[in-house]
Design a protein around this nucleic acid. Structure first.
Lengths: 241, 241
DNA sequence: GTGGCAAAATTGTCCGACAGTCCGATTATC
DNA sequence: GATAATCGGACTGTCGGACAATTTTGCCAC
């Protein structure tokens, strides 16, 4: 049964101010790139102290709605960068103790589709970027950290080539979660590196040739391999050294 | 070619402090539910002014890492709530002007899979919640706002029943973007309401009976309908009244 | 142990201040 | 005339202190 009265929570001034400015930004009344008035000026306009304004600004800054270009002093309205947003999401997921299986299922849902659209729509530049990360993996295959980073970048490149911001932004957080899991796995499962190398090659070719179906299928196999690898890793004893 | 020197960016004190505290939280050295020291105490520990601490805290608060239970004064370590996180993501996507097609493709990737796992793993309680939102849609089918909200909640309920936090969190932002698009569509495409009603029924039954494949298939049809509806809407003239 | 109460602590907000730095305009230089 | 050096103003980051409102705590009586 719903209560008759909702508890009223008084928002402190800094939050109210943050909300007001946020609404202006979302409503495009403040547009991307616009410079914000100075803190002193804002304090005057809102009729509060500068300290209060600063707290409000911090809020918007961490949301990625405000930022400053390097070396500049004044804040400007910014569009939240995918990297910033996704790192927040993956931190949240990490704190919720997501299992590898949960991560894997989500990857299985998203990555193949991204690959499929990437094959259909990639630009030459995107293809090139993708091929380069694949080459990087091949080159640095023995340096675990570099190899893992290359794998992650490969996924990112595929998502970027999909020309779908929603997919790309849904996919980005998965990468950050994948990295640690993959690091463990790649060291303990000998065949992992070869399989990844092969899969990346097949996927890259499919995307190059605009073969949507093949790109999706190979990406599916690729991801499925991760699960196999993870299961194998669980069986193998830790390397003790 | 790479520059010889990278630009050095000095992080202001409030950001450094925020980072330190954040790391402690992520590393579980500060655990969920723990109360944070008072601002004065933190200022002493970090050797900075209380104002600086406050700015740092605002940062962590908006990330959802700190929060306070209603009516309490002291801050405690909190796990970022999915709702909070996803609203940030969808705001970011909105500011990036995602198209309906992008949204649709992402839904098409995620929702059917969520339905599939929901059918496999839903608890009785989750099923009940899901059935209730379906019933709510049926009941309020003529109130556009309420109907749209019910549709969104139906998706949320399915994702929750999938027992996969990653999928659920990937799916949540899509809802917030779907709502406005759906509102326009449902008013202009007469058959939309009936189709949604039918699809929700089929999906609910499939999930009830643990029929994974059926759940996924029906969800696919359901989502596909959205695209059809969107195309029809584009053809139809706006209702002028 | 429980309830009640006064004292201490804490948060939200304000005020004023100052060093370091960025920006724009003015002036000096080639 | 174009460019380089210079200067003052504006702005941010940080500091110190202050105060009301409210929460938390410690204590006492029951």
């Amino acid at each position: 049964m719903a209560d008759l009265f909702a508890p009223l929570d008084d928002h402190p001034a800094y939050r109210q101010i943050a909300n007001v400015i946020e609404q202006r930004i979302v409503a495009r009344s403040l547009r991307t790139g616009d410079a914000l008035p100075s803190e002193t000026d804002l304090a005057r306009q809102f009729g509060v102290n500068r300290s209060t304004i600063r707290e409000a600004i911090r809020e918007l800054e961490t949301h990625g709605l405000l930022g400053r270009v390097r070396g500049e002093k004044r804040l400007r309205v910014t569009r939240p960068e995918p990297g910033q947003v996704s790192s927040g999401v993956s931190r949240a997921l990490a704190l919720h103790d997501v299992t590898f299986l949960e991560l894997w299922e989500a990857m299985m849902a998203i990555e193949p589709v991204a690959a499929q659209y990437a094959a259909a729509r990639r630009t030459p530049a995107q293809l090139q970027a993708l091929v380069r990360t694949a080459a990087r993996f091949k080159r640095e295959v023995d340096d675990t950290a570099a190899a893992v980073s290359a794998v992650v970048d490969f996924f990112t490149a595929v998502a970027a080539a999909s020309a779908n911001q929603v997919l790309a932004l849904s996919q980005a957080p998965l990468n950050l979660l994948l990295a640690p899991a993959l690091t463990r796995m790649i060291d303990r499962v000998p065949q992992a590196r070869t399989r990844i190398l092969e899969a990346q090659g097949k996927i890259a070719v499919a995307i190059k040739l605009h073969r949507s179906e093949q790109a999706r299928t190979w990406m599916e196999k690729h991801i499925r391999d991760f699960k196999r690898g993870h299961e194998l890793e669980a069986l193998n004893p830790k390397r003790t050294e």
